[in-house]
Simulated scan of single mutants.
Amino acid sequence: MKALLLLFLLLVSGCSTVETDTAIAEVASGIPLTETEAYTSANRKIRFLWREQVYDAGLQDSVSTIVIDQALADQLTDAERAALGYVVTFIGSACEWDGEANEELSNLKCRALTALDLGYQCSDQHLGFLQNWFRNDQDVLARLASCPRVPFTASSQQTFNEVYLTTQGDKIQVWFSASGVNVPMNVSWQWTEENDFLVQDDAISLVKVDQSEVVRGELGLEKGL
Results as ranks from 00 to 15, higher is better:
residue 151 P to W: 11
residue 88 V to H: 01
residue 169 G to R: 10
residue 174 V to K: 03
residue 120 Y to T: 05
residue 145 A to K: 14
residue 90 F to M: 06
residue 118 L to F: 07
residue 155 S to F: 14
residue 105 L to N: 14
residue 120 Y to H: 13
residue 120 Y to I: 05
residue 88 V to W: 01
residue 157 Q to L: 15
residue 130 L to R: 00
residue 102 N to K: 08
residue 93 S to K: 02
residue 169 G to M: 13
residue 144 L to H: 05
residue 128 G to W: 00
residue 100 E to Y: 15
residue 160 F to H: 12
residue 107 N to V: 02
residue 132 N to S: 07
residue 149 R to F: 02
residue 95 C to R: 08
residue 136 N to V: 05
residue 153 T to Q: 12
residue 162 E to K: 15
residue 137 D to W: 06
residue 133 W to V: 00
residue 148 P to V: 09
residue 161 N to M: 07
residue 106 S to T: 04
residue 161 N to D: 14
residue 130 L to G: 00
residue 114 T to F: 13
residue 164 Y to M: 14
residue 89 T to R: 00
residue 126 H to A: 04
residue 128 G to P: 02
residue 120 Y to W: 08
residue 129 F to M: 01
residue 166 T to N: 14
residue 104 E to Q: 14
residue 113 L to S: 03
residue 111 R to M: 09
residue 165 L to K: 15
residue 168 Q to T: 15
residue 108 L to M: 09
residue 161 N to Q: 11
residue 121 Q to L: 07
residue 143 R to W: 11
residue 133 W to R: 00
residue 111 R to C: 08
residue 134 F to Y: 03
residue 154 A to M: 14
residue 173 Q to G: 13
residue 105 L to G: 09
residue 161 N to K: 12
residue 130 L to V: 01
residue 96 E to R: 10
residue 142 A to S: 12
residue 117 D to A: 11
residue 141 L to S: 14
residue 153 T to V: 10
residue 134 F to V: 01
residue 137 D to C: 07
residue 87 V to N: 09
residue 93 S to Q: 05
residue 168 Q to F: 13
residue 106 S to D: 10
residue 99 G to I: 14
residue 144 L to R: 04
residue 106 S to K: 05
residue 169 G to H: 13
residue 137 D to E: 12
residue 138 Q to P: 05
residue 130 L to I: 00
residue 129 F to S: 00
residue 85 G to C: 02
residue 124 D to Q: 09
residue 164 Y to Q: 13
residue 155 S to E: 13
residue 142 A to Y: 09
residue 111 R to F: 06
residue 152 F to Q: 14
residue 125 Q to G: 09
residue 122 C to S: 04
residue 113 L to G: 02
residue 89 T to Q: 02
residue 94 A to C: 06
residue 149 R to T: 03
residue 88 V to N: 01
residue 156 S to W: 13
residue 157 Q to C: 13
residue 96 E to T: 10
residue 92 G to S: 05
residue 92 G to W: 03
